[in-house]
Computed example of a mutant assay.
Amino acid sequence: MLSTNCITIPKGVFITDNENGDKVIFNYNNGQYYGLDKMGAYFWNLLCEHKNIDMIIDIVINRFEVDKHMVTNDLLTLINNLEKEGLVQLS
C-alpha cells in the first residue's frame, strides 16, 4: 500500500469550490484548469487534511460502506493523475 507522510500542493496551484460542491483547480505553471466532481473533491479534502493514503481509505470505507479494493483503486488513480499533472507532490 502506498503511504506517505507528506502530500503537498506545489506553488502555482490554486483551488476553489464551486456552488455544486465540485473543485476547480488551476495550475498556473502550465495554464491548465482541472475539475473534480464531488467524490474527487472529497478525496482532495482528505488528502489535504490527513496526508496518509491508508488512513484516507479507511475513512472512506467507514463513511460510505464501499469495497476497499474499489476505494483503493479510485484513490490511487486520482493521486497518480494529480501527480502526473503537477497538482500534488508525494514524498
Rank of each mutant, 00 (worst) to 15 (best):
Y42K: 10
E49Q: 15
K23W: 06
C48P: 00
N73T: 13
E65W: 12
K51E: 09
N18F: 13
Y42G: 01
N5Y: 06
E49V: 09
Y33L: 14
G86L: 05
D37K: 10
L47E: 10
N30M: 04
N62I: 01
Y34R: 03
Y33W: 12
V71D: 04
H69K: 15
N5S: 10
D17M: 12
S91N: 14
R63G: 00
D17S: 12
I9F: 08
N30F: 03
V66P: 00
K68P: 02
I59P: 01
E83Q: 15
E83S: 12
N45E: 14
K84A: 09
F43Q: 11
G31F: 10
E85T: 04
M70R: 11
I59Y: 02
E83C: 04
I79S: 05
R63P: 00
N80E: 13
E49C: 09
I15K: 11
N52L: 08
L47V: 13
Y34L: 12
D54E: 15
C6F: 08
E83T: 12
K68S: 10
L87K: 02
M1P: 09
E85L: 01
N29Y: 09
T77V: 09
T4A: 03
L87I: 01
V60G: 00
N30A: 00
I15E: 13
K51G: 13
N73V: 04
K23A: 10
K11W: 05
E85C: 06
E49L: 11
N52A: 06
G12P: 01
E19H: 09
L47I: 15
Q89C: 01
M70Q: 10
L78D: 02
P10C: 06
L46E: 13
N45D: 12
N45L: 07
F64W: 13
L76R: 08
V13C: 04
Y34P: 03
I25Y: 03
L82I: 08
D17E: 13
L78G: 02
K11E: 15
S3W: 02
V88H: 04
T72L: 06
K68M: 08
V60A: 08
I53M: 07
N80M: 07
N20Y: 14
L47F: 05
G31K: 14
F26M: 05
N62L: 09
L90V: 15
G86S: 02
L75S: 02
V88W: 07
G35F: 07
L2T: 10
I15H: 06
V24W: 10
I25P: 02
G21W: 07
N45Q: 09
D58Q: 12
T8Y: 06
H50S: 08
V24D: 09
G40P: 09
K68F: 07
V13I: 09
K84Q: 07
G12Q: 03
S91D: 14
T77F: 02
R63H: 12
L75H: 00
F64Y: 15
L76W: 00
Q32K: 15
N45S: 14
I25T: 10
V60K: 04
K68C: 02
I15C: 05
E49W: 00
S3Q: 12
I61W: 03
N62Q: 01
E85S: 08
G35T: 14
G40R: 07
F43A: 01
D22V: 00
I79K: 06
H69D: 11
F14E: 09
D17Y: 05
G21I: 01
V60Y: 04
V24F: 06
Q32L: 12
K38E: 08
G40Y: 07
W44Y: 11
W44C: 01
